[in-house]
Simulated assay, not measured.
Amino acid sequence: MGRASTSETACGIGVASTAATAVGEAVSELKAALSGDFQHIIAFFSADYDAAALATALGDAFPQIAVSGCSTAGGIGPEGLMESGVLLIAFPRDGFRIHTGVIEDVGAFSVERASEIVRGLKAQVGLNSDSPIAERVFGVMLVDGLSNAEEPLLAAVHWACGDMQLIGGSAGDGLSFDGTSLIHEGRLLDRAAILMMIESDFPFRIFKTSNFEPTDIKLVVTAADTETRTVHELNAEPAAREYASAIGLMLDDLGPFSFASYPLVVKVGGDYYCRSIRNMNPDGSLSFFCAIDEGLVFTVARPEDMLSATARTLADLDRSLGGVDLVLGFDCVLRRLDAQNRQIRRKMEDLYRSYGVVGFHTYGEQLNAMHLNQTLTGVAFGARRGAG
C-alpha cells in the first residue's frame, strides 16, 4: 500500500490525496493520512471510481463525519494536478461550521424551492456575531455538470442567498461527457446539486481569475438547440466549420486543445465571459458548457499569460489576508488543457503549491449568480483566526 499526499494548514483544514486505483486501498490511505477532529469532508474523485462504492467506503472510514463530493475532470492536490485519484478536504470542528442540503432534480428546480432550502440552511447559521453574515459565511455548490441546468439553478439559489457570496463548480467525468456523480452522506445522487453553507472563524476572500483578451472576430449563433446547448450554425454556416475558419484551423484539427486556446466570449454588463465549447459533434455542430441561444453574439478571444494572471490574483489575495493559508479552487478543465498545450503545467503546479491551492477541474465554475467557463474561482482562507 502506498501513502497519501498531504498538506499542512494553520487553520486546521486537512488535505489528503491518493492515486490508488482500488476504492478500498484509496480510502485506507486517505484515512491514515488524515488526523484531527473533523466535522465535514469534501471529496473530489476521478470518474474511474465506482462512485457508490466510494461513498460507502468513505462513510465506513469516517463514520462520525459527513462527506459530500463529486466526480471531476481532474483534481488539484498537494502534489499538483491530478488526472485521476481522490482528494479529500476535511474541515475541523474548531473554527468552522458547515451546513449542507441536497437539491434534487435540478432541471425542475424553482425559486420557491431555492428559498426553502436556503432558508433552512441559514436558520442553522450561528447568530452570536455582530458582523454581517457575508463576512463570516459563504456558500459552495457542487452540481451535475451534464444537467444543462446550472444557469437557472444558480440564479435561484443566489437570489435566495442575498448578500452571502456563492462559489462552486460543475462535476465532470474527465473528457468523456458520459455521466457525472455526486455523493452526500453515503448516497449517490443523480441530476442533483449539493449546497453547503460554510461559517468560518478565519478570514476569507472569494475570488475569480481569468486570462483572455477579446479580438475583433464575431460569430453570431444563427441556429441552435438551447435545451442541449448545441449550436448548429454560426453566421449561417455549419458551426464547427465557421469556428475553425475564424481561428485559422482546419476542421479536422478542432478538439479540446483548440477550444481551450481560442475561447468564445460574450459581453455582459461591460465585461466579457467565456462560453466555452465542450466538443464537436459528428454532424458538425458544437456543444457548449454554458447556456446558449439563437442571436447570441460570440467574440473570439485569445488567452493572455495564464501563469502571470493567476499569480497576480493569488498575490493580491495574499496581501489582502496577510498571508494565504489555503485556497479551495474550482478550475476549468480547459485551463488545464491550455496549460499543457503551452507547456506551463509544471509552473502552474508550482504556483498552486506555493499558495496551497486545492480543488478540482470543472465543467463550469460558479461565482454568485454567474455560471462561468475558463476561469479559476474559489475561496482563500487566512491563517489568523478573526483577522482580516
Rank of each mutant, 00 (worst) to 15 (best):
S147E: 13
K208V: 08
G80W: 15
H99F: 02
G85A: 13
R346P: 01
Y273T: 07
F212E: 02
G179H: 12
A22I: 05
A114C: 06
R345M: 10
G59W: 09
D144Y: 04
A193N: 07
G364C: 06
A73Q: 09
V23I: 08
A193C: 09
R278I: 09
G75I: 09
V231H: 02
D105A: 14
F202Y: 15
G101R: 11
D144I: 08
A4Y: 10
V379W: 13
D50I: 01
E150T: 14
G107N: 06
S5F: 14
P214Y: 06
I42L: 15
V15G: 04
R385N: 06
V27K: 09
M164H: 01
R97S: 15
G120A: 03
S245N: 14
F289H: 10
V324A: 12
D293Y: 02
K347D: 13
F177K: 04
I98P: 09
I76P: 05
V265F: 11
H184K: 09
A123N: 06
S200T: 02
L264H: 12
V157P: 07
V23A: 08
Q124C: 14
F289L: 08
S320Q: 13
E151T: 10
P132Y: 10
A291D: 14
T56G: 11
Q124V: 00
Q64F: 12
A61N: 05
A53I: 11
V268E: 15
A52G: 04
